[in-house]
Each structure stands twice: as C-alpha cells, then as structure tokens.
Design a protein around this nucleic acid. Sequence first.
DNA 1: TCAACTTTGTGCAAGCGTTCACAAGCGGTA
DNA 2: TACCGCTTGTGAACGCTTGCACAAAGTTGA
Lengths: 251, 251
Amino acid sequence: MAAQRGEGDGVVTSPEAPADVRERARAIPEAAVARLAVYLRVLSGMVEQGVTTISSEELAGAAGVNSAKLRKDLSYIGSYGTRGVGYDVEVLVSHIERILGLTRKHSVAVVGIGNLGHALANYGGFPSRGFPVAALFDIDPDLTGVPVGGIPVNHIDDITSVCSEREVSIGVIATPPQAAQAVCDRLVSAGVQCILNFAPVVLQVPDYVEVRKVDLAVEMQILSFHVARRADEAANDVVNGIGVDGVVIRP
Amino acid sequence: MAAQRGEGDGVVTSPEAPADVRERARAIPEAAVARLAVYLRVLSGMVEQGVTTISSEELAGAAGVNSAKLRKDLSYIGSYGTRGVGYDVEVLVSHIERILGLTRKHSVAVVGIGNLGHALANYGGFPSRGFPVAALFDIDPDLTGVPVGGIPVNHIDDITSVCSEREVSIGVIATPPQAAQAVCDRLVSAGVQCILNFAPVVLQVPDYVEVRKVDLAVEMQILSFHVARRADEAANDVVNGIGVDGVVIRP
DNA sequence: TCAACTTTGTGCAAGCGTTCACAAGCGGTA
DNA sequence: TACCGCTTGTGAACGCTTGCACAAAGTTGA
C-alpha cells in the first residue's frame, strides 16, 4: 500500500528504450507536468485570439513562470521551437496535448452528490476538455435515478459494474470523509487507477493507483500560516525599528 | 507584479532575531507547512479517539508520509516529543495550531456564487476550523440580499467596503475565468492579502499577496498524463516481452 | 552573401527538500 | 544507581528543481 504522492516514483530506466515519446513521458518531472497543463490553457487562449507564434518570454509571462523554466519544461517534450522566432502556437498545443494524453477521452465518475458533487457534475470545464462525466454515484436511495447535470445518479453499490462497463478511468471522490476510504476501495476494485480526492482524508491505495488530492482545509491553513507569518514579521520589524510599511522609523 | 507561487520567497535572515517562533516560521518550507496541516487533522482525529501519545512511526503511517520526514517537519516547529515515548497528542496539536496561525479567526469572503460558490458557502469545514465565512459576493443583482448558507449575498461592487469593514483576511475566487483578475484586483485593493483561486487563470498580484490556486483542469490533466504514461509503459513492456500483469511472457 | 540580431535549447552550478543513519536522551527495570 | 531498549532530533549525503549563461541556429536587412 502506498499513500498518496511521494516515494515509489523512482524513475526506472528500462533497457534499450526506443528513444521516443514513451521514454520521454517517464522522464518528465511531476512539477513540469503540472506546468505543461497551465501552458496548454494559456496557449488555447492564444489560439482563440488568433496568435500564431509566441516567444518563451511572452508565454512565460502569461503563465507566471520564468522563461528559462518554461524552455526547460518544453524541452522535456521535444524541440518544437524556432530559434530567433519562437514557438508555433498550434504545434505546441498539439504536442502538449499528446504528452498529457488528451488525445483520448477519459471518462470520469463522480462519487458523492452533495454540494460539491453537484458543482462538479455541472462543471462545464470537464467535458469541454476531454473529460466526459460518465457516471454519478451516491449512497442516498432517494437520489438514485435523479438526473444531475444531465446524468442520472446511480447507487453507490453499483460502482463496480457501472465503472467497468462505462470504462471510467478517473474517479472523483466528493463524499464525506468517513465514506472516502470505502469508496476509494470500491473504485480501485472496479479497475479505476486514477483518483481525485476532495475528502479530507489520506487514502490508502495500492502502488499502481495514482491519487491526487484537493484539500480545502489544508489550502486555507497554508494561507493562515502566511497571514500569521506576515503579522509576526511586521511585529518583528517594528521591534527592530522598521515600520509596517517598510519605512524605517528609527534609523 | 509577482505571479502566483514561485521565486521571490528568498528567505532573508534578519539581524539578531529573537530565536523564537517568529524566526522559526520563516524557515519552514512550504511543503512542510502543507504536511503540518495534514498532521493536524490526523491528530485531531486521535484526540477524539482518546489517544494521548503517538510515535512518529504511527503518525507518519496515518498521514501517508515517511517517519523521518515527519520528524523533520515537526523539528521545524520545535522539539516537543519525548525520546523513547513519542509525542503528546494534545501538545502537538496546540503547537501546530499556533504555528499555522489557527489561534485567531480568519474571516473568509467568497466571490462568485455559482455552483462552486454555493458549495463553498455551505461547506461546514470552514467555520468549524476557524475560517468563518464573513461575506459572499456576486455580480448578479438578482442574487443580492439572498441568503446562501445563512449569509446574504452582496453585490460585487461593494467588495472593498464590505471586506475592510468585516476584516476579511482570505478571499476565495469562484467566478468564471474572465472575471477572476478583476475580482482579484478589487480584493487586493480592499486589503486582502491571501487569495484562494478556483478560476482557471494565472492571477497577477503584487509581491506581498499570497495566492494559492486549486485548478481542477490541471489536476485532471495530470491524472490523464499518468493514464497515458501507464498505457505507454504497458505497450512498451509487451514489446519488451513482459505481459500486462508484469508477467514475463517471453523469457 | 554576410553580418547583426533574436530566441531557442541545454550544460552547469546553486539551492531545496528528502532520506539516511546514528548519537542523544528518556522511561523502565533490576 | 546503573543498565537496557526504544524513540526522538538532526548532521550529512543525496537527488531533484531551478536559474544562469551561452553556444547554436534561425531570421532579417543590406
């Protein structure tokens, strides 16, 4: 059992690899993958605006990163830029989409149709980006059959059959924390290997399952930490003779 | 203007620091802060179960991390364990809460009362953890005055006055992407220094503002990448004579 | 055709974060 | 009190990311 992200990602260099996309994909750092997704969004916006070519400097600015990092990230997926000119926006889009596996559709199942589940089921960003919501589940029998966002809710007991039948590749857990581990286990036994977890619980899963978590409480507490740090710094600075605005009050 | 997380976090060692919490807080790595929040939740669960003492090994297991990392994380906030015994759960809880700044309340404003905004406004996890939702905003005049989750919605034009009046320290952006930057600017001018952004946009903010983003599309695409990588590996392994289950089919 | 200019792609070094491994310290026991 | 076993706290090594700086490569203009 591996728990969430972390160890176990040891990149194993396989013997005599056909130097192509396969090997490339293994070597891309997780952090770079996350940024590639951001670049992709920015680039999609560019396409709509009719921009055909973009420099690393411009793209980096729009994506909020440093241009050297951007170029390194793009170099992981190959060299598709033109020196002295920049990158062809459409070419870049299609290469990033290929690397991120967005050329095929990934069916999504949402489990737990509460406030968040409703929001997710109705969220337009999923289907439009190649992530059709293929199934909804809840434990409440009253919800069974009721359509949410155009899809009827199934009972949670049918997870295994429905998920394998509809070839769900990504499971989204939006249940209360108590139910999350059980739901996760069922998803895994239904063959789902990627899970996005909104429940504030550390899920235990087999090594081959990829879990990403979105934890609002943790995000809020990180922000809280920064508020506190800032307040402390201010207090500290005042003690050291520097005013709250950074103005030195006792030179 | 700094964009989101990244550089600019250069830890400046201030002169003759009173070796206490203030200096400690600066030195804690961001990643460790995120984990501390997780430990805190696990520990809270322990308290409810009546557990009084816990070893690093146990806590690490429950939090899904390696025990050495856990001990190092805890060492950032001080030495509150007893060698040969472990940590006193309640002591640890109160120290983590102090470091994360959870001893004071942090008022939250949610902007954009769509599906997600509703879910956030009704989310019980916020108030119970010291993050009272103090204000809601939307651009739709029909929503103004309508209570959601017990709090009446204000019009977006009143952000500045309402936020400073109610001492909002954290702003949550749950608007469509087009509106996000404008809303962000208003929050910043209202004095909000911490922002949690759900809109799929890279926000541009002044250096002193802390932005965290929750980006569903990016999360999905990271999972998609792993699905694709896995499929490629499987294909690759079959080529190399290893079956899908890891069974060598051509020895 | 050639020179000047622009922008990519990448080797290298510095900085962080993670992991290892073990000394230091504490409670229990004789 | 002295010893033993267990667990913390942390110095040091390792490895991954980031950022710098520059050669390579392409375009433009004369």
